[in-house]
Design a binder for these strands. Structure first.
Lengths: 198, 198
DNA sequence: CCTACCGATCGGTAGG
DNA sequence: CCTACCGATCGGTAGG
C-alpha cells in the first residue's frame, strides 16, 4: 500500500472514530508513520484530506451500485435491495459512522451530497414501491419516500451505534454489530411494507 | 435566567450543533456574554461542563418518566409509550443530536449511562411486548429487546438528522422535522408489532 | 465576574 | 519525504 492510500485509510478510521474536529493531523501522521509535513505534501490541507475521505467513501458506494441495480431487477427486489444496502455498511462500520458524523457536523453539505449521489436511486426505489402498492403486493398505507428514508436511517444507525444498542440485546461480541439487531432490522423493514410472511 | 443556567443552555446548543471537540470555551463564553475565566468559575473545566450538560439532559428524561409510565399503564400502551418518547425528542432536537454524538464519541461511557438510566424501563417495555406476544395481540416473530432498541434508533435518528432526510421527502420546512417522517416512523414501528390496523 | 497570562497543541509553511 | 519553525487558538490559572 502506498503512502497516499495509507493516509486515506488511517484518516478514514480516525475521522469515523473521533470525528474530524477530534482528530489532529499529528495523530493521522503518527498512525501512518510519517511526519506531519509529509502528510501535507500528499493532501494540501486538512480540509482537502477530509474531502478526499468522503469522495473515497462515495466511490465505494458507486462501485456497489451496479450490484444494487441488479438486485432491484430481481423478483424479490425488496429483500435484495435491503440486503445489498446492509452489506455495504456491514463491510465497514466506518462508512455508517462517517456518514452519520457528516450529517451531524455539516448538514447543508451532506444534503447536497445526498441529493447528488443518492437521490436518483432513492427515487427509483420509491417508485418501485409505489408500483407494488398499485399492484396490491405492498401495503398502501406506506409513504414510499418517507419509508425509504427511515429504512436508511435504520441501517445507518444500526451499524454506526450498533455495539452500543446492545445494552439490552447482550450477546457475545461487544464490538461487532449483533446479528439479532440486523435480523430485527430486516424484519421491521419488511413487516412495514408487506402484510404477511413471504 | 442566571448565568449558570445560561452557560448550560448555550453549551448544550453548541455541543449538539458542532460537537464537544468542535466547540471552544471561547465560543460558549461569547454566546453567553461573559469572559472565558468566568465560565470556568461556574464549571471548573470543559469536561465538568460537558458532564453537567449530559446530567441536565438525563434529569429532563427522568422528569418525563412518570408520564411515560402512566402511558404504559393505558390500554393502548404501545402507541402511548411511542408517542411519549417521540414527544420527548421532538420538544428539543438538541436532545437527539447530543445523544447521538455521545454515542459516536464515547461509546463506552454512553453504554454505562444507558445501562444505568435507560435499561430498567427498556426491560419493562420489552417484557410488556413479550406478554402481548403470548396473549397473541402482538406478532410472535418480533424480537422484543432488539425491536425496542431499533425503535429508539429510529426515533433518535429521525430527530437528530431529520432535516437532512428530507432530501426525498421535501415538504415545506427545512429545519423542522417533517411530519411525514414522524408519521411513517410511527407506522413502521406499529406495523412491525401488530399485523393489522388497530 | 474581570484582566493578564501560561504551556501545549493546532493547521500550515519554508526550505531543502 | 524531512527538520525547523510560524501565528493562532486551545483549555486552564493567578490574582484581584
Amino acid at each position: 500500500m502506498d503512502v497516499r492510500a495509507k493516509i486515506l485509510h488511517e484518516a478514514t478510521r480516525l475521522f469515523a472514530m473521533k470525528g474530524v474536529d477530534g482528530t489532529s493531523l499529528q495523530e493521522i501522521s503518527d498512525a501512518v508513520g510519517v511526519r506531519k509535513p509529509s502528510l501535507l505534501y500528499h493532501f494540501p490541507s486538512k480540509e482537502a484530506l477530509h474531502s478526499s475521505v468522503l469522495e473515497h467513501l462515495l466511490s465505494r458506494w458507486n462501485e456497489s451500485l451496479p450490484r444494487l441495480l441488479k438486485a432491484a431487477a430481481r423478483e424479490d427486489r425488496f429483500d435484495a435491495i435491503l440486503d445489498e444496502t446492509i452489506e455495504f455498511f456491514a463491510a465497514d462500520v466506518d462508512r455508517a459512522r462517517l456518514l452519520l458524523r457528516e450529517a451531524l457536523d455539516r448538514p447543508a453539505e451532506m444534503r447536497e451530497l445526498l441529493r447528488a449521489h443518492a437521490s436518483p436511486w432513492l427515487g427509483i426505489v420509491a417508485e418501485s414501491i409505489k408500483k407494488a402498492q398499485h399492484e396490491g403486493s405492498m401495503l398502501k398505507e406506506a409513504d414510499p419516500e418517507a419509508y425509504v428514508m427511515q429504512v436508511i436511517n435504520l441501517v445507518v444507525g444500526t451499524f454506526a451505534v450498533g455495539p452500543l444498542l446492545q445494552v439490552l440485546v447482550h450477546s457475545r461480541g461487544q464490538h461487532e454489530v449483533d446479528a439479532r439487531l440486523v435480523r430485527e432490522l430486516k424484519r421491521v423493514a419488511r413487516a412495514a411494507l408487506v402484510s404477511r410472511r413471504n
